[in-house]
Amino acid sequence: MSDPTTNAPADTADSTASQHTAGAFDIRNIIGALLGLYGVILTLAGLLGAHEPEKTGGVNANLWTGLVLAAAAAVFLVWARLKPIVVPAHVEPAQEDATRPGPRRHPGGH
């Protein structure tokens, strides 16, 4: 927090040996997975299930929402694949504050 340059991706680019991507922890993959599952389920419900046109005014709402959600999920997954988040090898620990010390890790812990 004190020095903005230490966390900048540009600086960590030289130390490629120890860095890796966030992978499954990337929020875009999590969003993509949930929206994708919703999209598939709703699309199937729209194709196979009861249509209920009297509620929606004639539109197959499940089908259309399902398709849009699947497309949105694809965008998130592709985006995460094209520009992965790179985890820097070293990050400074949280700062201590004299007026209110932050929680410390256990000695012997990680």
């Binding site: 966030a22 922890f25 929020i27 997975a33 988040i85």
Partner: peptide
């Protein structure tokens, strides 16, 4: 999904700090 994120976060505390790091570079 919500609980899954909770479990992932919990596990990551002990064996990896990826979760928090990807959070910090969001």
């Amino acid at each position: 999904f919500v609980l899954g994120i909770g479990f992932l976060a919990r596990r990551s505390v002990s064996d990896s700090i990826d979760f928090f790091l990807s959070g910090r570079s969001l």
